[in-house]
Design a protein around this nucleic acid. Structure first.
Lengths: 341, 341
DNA sequence: TTGTAGGCGTTATCAA
DNA sequence: TTGATAACGCCTACAA
């Protein structure tokens, strides 16, 4: 049986009121009493019951994250870092993280957000994988439930968010490729309407323009978020009359298929084919130094999101509600031996 | 302002008692009343306040997971699957998952378990990365707080757990390697005392014995949990008078270094050096078909852990408290072209 | 079958 | 500076 505030009060012949205030650091308690209370509480191992406190204070000191899944699986290899980043930033401020999952965009997702909101289960939400049109944003904004999101949906609501500047980054990469002599640059996208992905495409488009090139629609292809999908898409590109000499691949999984396809076609990465991959930190690209990889500083992003959410929750709404973060580019090292590592 | 049970009662001119019982499915409510109550509750969008319910019922319908971190980072690439497995099994039973992290074995970890226990924050815990000597096990057992764990510590407590049968598996793999002509088999372990790792070593030892070979201590080496560590350890092995022709590598990260070391030494994986790696699902081995990989069915394990924990929490303590799971072996495909993919 | 009343452990209001 | 008292929203003996 955990000790309650009553036990502490009884032990000291004080009222629970005084004990409560002493522990919460109110000023209207004599220093001597406070000292005794803190002593006794510590000695008895008193830790306030969370449910009672939540009920009374009308806040949970907990933030919620609903992990978007794709056919039941967590999306991408960065989830762990994202979660641990959130945890870290939250626990510094004595917040906990409540977590669940739901297929992204589905009805279960809606129910879950709704339930946690109505149950007063969390004080706010962290969103990621925001889509161009994202009901979560409109719902939470409308219900006045605090949230922050990685990337912004297109519906023009005003809310705090972190934005990754893929536009500048990818546009610059296109220039880099052109500078290296890779002139036919393909883009392998995905079928979803995630903002992070469409921003990359936009960067690609603008990069071409900036380098006085025209966008060749046959070089833009979509892939399933699987390595098989990437393999198939790569084969299609190879089958073109004038196949690409460079490929920008929106993310990790399909890139593995791309590598395999290149291998099967006896093409040397970084030589016959320049490859740029996003979010490959967890993928097979790590051991393939001829690839240029673009990574998000995931943990930092997660921490920022939490910090912003907490200031939002605590009402100290800052003017600075949009944070722009630059992705980290690791340029591919040309493989002298022309092989793979 | 979320609607409360009062609102529902008022709307129907009923007492909150009746509403409560109708919604909770008690039998002493007339069918007609129940119908009306359910109707009204639905129409008003009534969802019970969680804190109030927790306070009253003295349970949270939440389970806790404290992610063990190593120098601030989540350990291994399987965390995401593990978490999503837990979430899935939990949400089926209407449980939520509260999650935090702490450096494994540290003081912060103890505090956190203690706090969540005393605060009545969760109904039970899931443990993974159990060590031979693990204070979490003794603490929770002593405090009578429900928990289940992946692997069992060596202190002989009685508690429900899932056990991965690395012993049989690795011992069999040793036989397989010997059968393929790889006679000098090295073992690259880790410095921690995780049960999953020592079980693998034990399987290695027994496998050698079963194949009438003696354990050569110079072939047993420890590595940091980093790819650099793996690289260095591999170089040391290569420098031996009689270097190994096969290597069993306890997990993912160091294996990447091993591959690099092999490449630098112009050794062909699956030919000059047979490599067995554990938990490589996320690592660079995925694109290296010449490697034999041994994986845990992580999601299934996580689900089982949660299911067992929930039966434990709900007092229906089953006799079947130990579950043994076989790891999944994908044998390396000999690379005909002798190259990497 | 329904309602009344008390309490879960805290915090907040007010009076002493 | 301290203490009695009333919530917070829900559940459950017990009474009607």
């Amino acid at each position: 049986m955990p000790v309650t505030i009553r036990d502490v009060a009884r032990q000291l012949n004080l009222s629970i009121t005084t004990v409560s205030r002493a522990l919460d650091g109110y000023q209207d308690v004599s220093a001597a009493t406070r000292e005794r209370v803190i002593q006794a509480a510590h000695q008895l191992g008193y830790i306030p019951n969370r449910a009672a406190r939540q009920l009374r204070r009308r806040r949970t000191d907990t933030i919620g994250y609903i992990m978007p899944t794709i056919s039941g699986h967590p999306s991408g290899g960065l989830v762990a870092e994202f979660i641990s980043g959130m945890i870290e930033a939250a626990s510094i401020k004595k917040y906990d993280l409540l977590i669940s999952s739901a297929p992204e965009g589905g009805e279960a997702e809606q129910l879950l957000y709704h339930r946690w909101a109505c149950e007063r289960r969390v004080d706010g939400f962290i969103l990621d994988r925001v889509r161009q049109v994202d009901w979560r944003v409109s719902y939470l904004a409308q219900e006045h439930i605090p949230f922050t999101s990685l990337e912004r949906s297109a519906d023009g609501q005003d809310y705090p968010s972190v934005h990754i500047d893929y536009l500048t980054c990818v546009s610059g990469l296109v220039g880099h490729l052109v500078g290296q002599g890779f002139k036919r640059i393909a883009f392998m996208g995905s079928a979803d309407d995630l903002v992070i992905h469409s921003d990359k495409f936009e960067g690609y488009r603008l990069g071409l323009i900036a380098n006085h090139m025209t966008l060749d629609p046959t070089l833009v292809i979509q892939s399933d978020p699987t390595s098989t999908g990437g393999y198939q898409a790569a084969r299609k590109l190879q089958a073109l009359p004038k196949p690409p000499t460079a490929l920008i691949c929106v993310y990790d999984e399909p890139a593995i298929g791309v590598l395999r396809a290149a291998y099967d076609a006896h093409m040397k990465i970084g030589q016959d084919l320049a490859v740029v991959v996003f979010d490959a930190a967890q993928g097979s690209q790590r051991s393939q130094p001829a690839i240029t990889s673009v990574d998000q500083p995931v943990e930092e992003i997660a921490q920022q999101l939490v910090r912003m959410l907490l200031t939002e929750i605590n009402g100290t709404s800052l003017p600075m509600r949009q944070l722009v973060i630059q992705p980290v580019v690791r340029f591919g090292i040309f493989s002298a031996k022309g092989g793979y590592i």
